[in-house]
Write a protein that binds this DNA or RNA. Structure first.
Lengths: 162, 162
DNA sequence: CTTCGATAGTTGTACCTACAACCATCAGGC
DNA sequence: GCCTGATGGTTGTAGGTACAACTATCGAAG
């Protein structure tokens, strides 16, 4: 059992985790695109705005919370603005900064989209697990995030109901 | 506690899982691109070929095992062939089919790349978990896959050491 | 042997993301 | 007030993926 390799148990766990990593994002994306015309990233951005004070966030804060580069977020926000779901306003505090504000239409979009998304998460994930496993998953996720996201950027902002 | 929404425990578990889903693939990709010039998908395809009989697989078999569309795989294989890591040969059995064969250079690439990739998986995942959690993760992954991949396409082929 | 639906793969178009170059603004030192 | 490095954001280019249209082959029915 060389330390360089994985044990049999680790291999089995890893194969399954790798498969979940490959399949679950696609499944979530498919439901959102089909039912709401939003990518999972679009939804995540809108949902995070919907939970923020005044439903507004700095570009850089939103980028940190969604693990996106500013370049990527800039493109996404431009498209969402074109659809009337968000607005961009220059920050009054900092001439360099841009605040992204959720519009009424954007709020309605989030409210209308969330139930279907939550139902999908429930169906694909939590219906398959018993309460003890949910707790195990919570702890495992926490410990993995300590490595992947030491600064807790992803969980710093209040994340929405899903 | 409306059934339509998630319980507090489920929410916490989901936020962490969603963050892992967002961060882990990027972290794995970054290491492989940096150290080997391969995307995670490239590596997965090469590694799967390296474990196959005669180090060869049908396009459609490789696509099923990697959860890729044939269109995507066709592009990837064309690029890998251009780098001399695989060859494409028309199947002798079926005039429609194409067999993808790992070249000697491709084999060397997998052998040279695997240790660093395994080390990354170990560092990001298994070093953070104790043996009981590895077992929990294995079971949870299995139950999630039953929903995400009812036909077990992803685990049908022998997956490589990682 | 001919026909017809199904299967295997490739390619064209559109969209999305990464990387780097770029511009504007801020903050601190002098 | 002026420099200078750092920060916040946008855009051009290149590369990868999805979807749909297309070609070619297979297999079975008649």
């Amino acid at each position: 059992m060389d330390e360089q390799w994985l044990s049999e148990e680790e291999q089995q766990a890893w194969r399954r985790l790798a498969a979940v990593l490959e399949l679950l994002p696609g499944a979530l994306d498919a439901q959102l695109v089909r039912d709401a015309g939003l990518t999972h990233f679009d939804y995540l951005a809108l949902a995070m705005l919907s939970e923020a004070p005044d439903r507004a966030l700095r570009m850089s804060a939103l980028a940190a919370g969604t693990n996106a580069t500013l370049a990527r977020l800039s493109n996404v926000v431009r498209r969402l603005e074109g659809r009337g779901l968000v607005r961009r306003v220059p920050s009054p505090d900092d001439g360099r900064a841009t605040d992204v504000v959720l519009t009424a239409a954007g709020w309605d979009k989030v409210v209308g989209t969330a139930p279907g998304h939550v139902a999908t998460v429930r169906r694909l994930v939590f219906d398959a697990l018993d309460p003890a496993q949910v707790d195990q998953l919570r702890v495992i996720g926490e410990q993995l995030l300590a490595r992947l996201d030491p600064d807790h950027r992803m969980l710093a902002l209040q994340q929405p109901g899903t």
